[in-house]
């Protein structure tokens, strides 16, 4: 995994992903589930304050479908301006 101080982006191995949905539970600000339980990632980089949560989401995935990839600082776009609103349903 990239060092804690580097900006990171979330990469999902779509073939491995089996729709367990733990990533969306642990990082609801950036990941929501579609109608069939598969993740939609909003935003290309993880804002600094969510780094630990992103790491935990990656570790929780039972099939190791998530990865954090370092994003070069020079080309890093602004963090997603809109975050997914916190879900009120139980998940």
């Amino acid at each position: 995994m990239p060092a804690p101080s580097e900006p990171v982006g979330i990469v999902i191995d779509r073939i491995r992903c089996d729709g367990h949905g733990m990533c969306a539970e642990l990082l609801p600000e950036l990941i929501e589930l579609d109608d069939w339980g598969y993740p939609i990632v909003h935003g290309t980089t993880v804002p600094g304050d969510l780094g630990e949560h992103a790491r935990r989401a990656v570790a929780a995935c039972p099939v190791l479908a998530l990865r954090l990839r370092p994003v070069p600082r020079a080309t890093m776009p602004a963090p997603a301006a809109t975050r997914v609103p916190a879900s009120t349903s139980g998940g």
Partner: peptide, 9 residues
């Protein structure tokens, strides 16, 4: 049939 969004969507 390898990726959920494609299969179901």
């Amino acid at each position: 049939a390898q990726c959920g969004p494609c299969v179901f969507g």
